[in-house]
Nucleic acid binder design. Structure first.
Lengths: 212, 212
DNA sequence: CTTTTAACACCTAGGTGTAAAATT
DNA sequence: AATTTTACACCTAGGTGTTAAAAG
């Protein structure tokens, strides 16, 4: 399924006339398996997993390749990224294990006529800058463990409109959403929902993120 | 609206490892305005138009750029091309005048690192091969003039399924479609619907066309 | 017991010809 | 009278959480 909320970034400092690919991948935060403890409302370590020798799949932004000028003029949204827990996936989706913690990385890749970047499967050795943001860390699930996540998804994702409170006056009745009976639902979780906050691997980062 | 049936081509003779853009545009067949004479079932000249000094818009195939190998391995479909009669269009659609004859052209453009082909608005001076096919000529309309065109669209376009004969057994009742009362409908006409026929500007053409 | 899968109703988003109204 | 525009019902295509069943 799609990642929601999606990763959205702004880029600065590119050469306006140069061509760039921009891509995203998702890497494990640790090698732990987690479980959600409902009565204490937190994720706790539930075991170890071996994440070694798996190269994460790269999702290339569909606007790629594009000039630095154009990239910098718009918000770059990865709202079509799809996640799956199927290790045999053949549709190019990003493969993750459920009940694990992950962090998206955004890569800015300078066009290099020596390589065929049209359908790169892995990152080039040079000409790449990578960024990630602590606030976009998330835990994967196949069924929501947390009512607040469900509420966030229903409120913010246009495709979940059918599950919003049927009351005509939005705002007045928002609180009622909390009274929905809890059931184990479906889809991958995505904890981050920061708004225009700053963070990541570089303190003078030309890339900033915001929740989609 | 979309062009339907769409132009679909196969390409041969490209360099497998070289990068190419493939694009389509639509050029006037003549400078005549036409009207449809219903009782004789044919288009007749109804006046003159000046097509000069308008550069046709280019639609770049969304898979561009792509290696010759990949282009040659698939059928190249232009089924997302959109036509409009709005001369002020700002969505990049191909602008045509209604009641005129046109012919699509397919362009194979070799990647050239000297130019930014990422969002070309016009054809480069070199490194371009162009092809067109007599059987893809069509006449633009805002309302269908010809029952057979309406039938073809309803039968072949999945989005027009709602207008197909409600009879459960397709095939047996096909003939009934002819009994629909004729009314002036909407959308741009597109005469060509050849199936795997050969033609075009070059007798040893590496590009062949088929109706979508 | 926990977690995953699959079918589903309900949405968004947008491509059809239709029919009536508006324009020329 | 001929042509174009607009609103619309009816589709395709696919993204939601829900739910019950299956799997572990």
């Amino acid at each position: 399924r799609r990642m929601f909320p999606s990763v959205r970034v702004k880029v600065k400092g590119l050469e306006p006339l140069k061509q760039y690919y921009i891509a995203i991948d998702v890497v494990p935060v640790d090698s732990k398996r987690y479980r959600y403890v409902y009565h204490s409302s937190q994720w706790m370590v539930a075991g170890n997993t071996d994440h070694s020798c798996i190269t994460p799949r790269l999702y290339i932004h569909p606007d790629s390749p594009c000039s630095g000028e154009t990239w910098m003029r718009q918000i770059i949204s990865f709202d079509r990224v799809k996640l799956t827990n199927n290790e045999m996936d053949d549709k190019g989706h990003i493969i993750l294990q459920s009940m694990h913690k992950y962090k998206p990385r955004v890569h800015v890749i300078a066009q290099d006529s020596r390589f065929d970047l049209a359908q790169i499967q892995s990152l080039p050795a040079e000409g790449v800058q990578s960024f990630s943001f602590q606030e976009t860390e998330f835990t994967t699930v196949t069924a929501y463990q947390n009512q607040q996540i469900t509420k966030l998804k229903i409120d913010r994702n246009p495709f979940a409109k059918g599950f919003r409170d049927p009351g005509r006056n939005r705002g007045v009745l928002d609180g009622l959403l909390e009274t929905y009976p809890w059931r184990p639902p479906l889809a991958l979780d995505f904890k981050a929902f920061g708004a225009d906050s700053q963070g990541g691997s570089s303190s003078s980062s030309p890339v900033t993120s915001s929740g989609g």
